[in-house]
């Protein structure tokens, strides 16, 4: 178990889902992967398949049309998992909070562990958010282990 837990927390794979973002946060998420920020040096890998992922990065506003997709992606990620809401829109709806087709925040749909502020969120902030998420991830792993031992 030790080895598995260690590799889980040391090499989290992230999947990125854009709900209804203006692309500002998305390009910053992608910028994290590129040579200047290079999150791969922390073992963080961006992948397309939610079934391989540990961390879900959500950007943008949720609306009634994409909430089903968001929930679907969230449910496909195996436990334990961490959700990071990136940018003002994902946290609260941001500048679009008053629009008729906007749900004010991702946390209305799925549980969120870390909120990254900013419009657009800076790559440093996103990396910080993911690292904070990893601490939560570790806690969740431990909780799961206790449960498994208890059984």
């Amino acid at each position: 178990m030790g080895l598995i837990n260690n590799s889980r927390a040391k090499s989290p794979w992230v999947v990125h889902f854009d709900c209804g973002s203006c692309n500002g946060c998305d390009i910053e998420v992608l910028a994290c992967l590129t040579p200047l920020y290079d999150i791969e040096r922390f073992g963080i890998l961006n992948i397309g398949n939610p079934k391989h992922a540990d961390v879900l990065l959500v950007t943008g506003t949720v609306n009634p049309r994409n909430e089903r997709v968001l929930r679907n992606v969230y449910e496909q990620i195996p436990e334990p998992k961490v959700v990071v809401a990136i940018g003002a829109c994902a946290c609260t709806g941001g500048v679009f909070a008053d629009c008729y087709n906007v749900i004010q925040g991702v946390d209305k749909i799925i549980p969120v562990d870390v909120y990254v502020p900013g419009c657009a969120a800076r790559p440093e902030a996103i990396i910080d958010g993911v690292v904070l998420g990893l601490q939560k991830f570790q806690e969740k792993v431990e909780k799961m282990n206790k449960k498994a031992v208890g059984n």
Binding site: C19, G60, N63, R65, N66, V69, D98
Partner: peptide, 14 residues
């Protein structure tokens, strides 16, 4: 389509 529709053109009212 419709996954990203926010309806921001209506924000001119507020």
């Amino acid at each position: 389509i419709g996954y990203i529709h926010r309806g921001l053109e209506r924000l001119v009212k507020v």
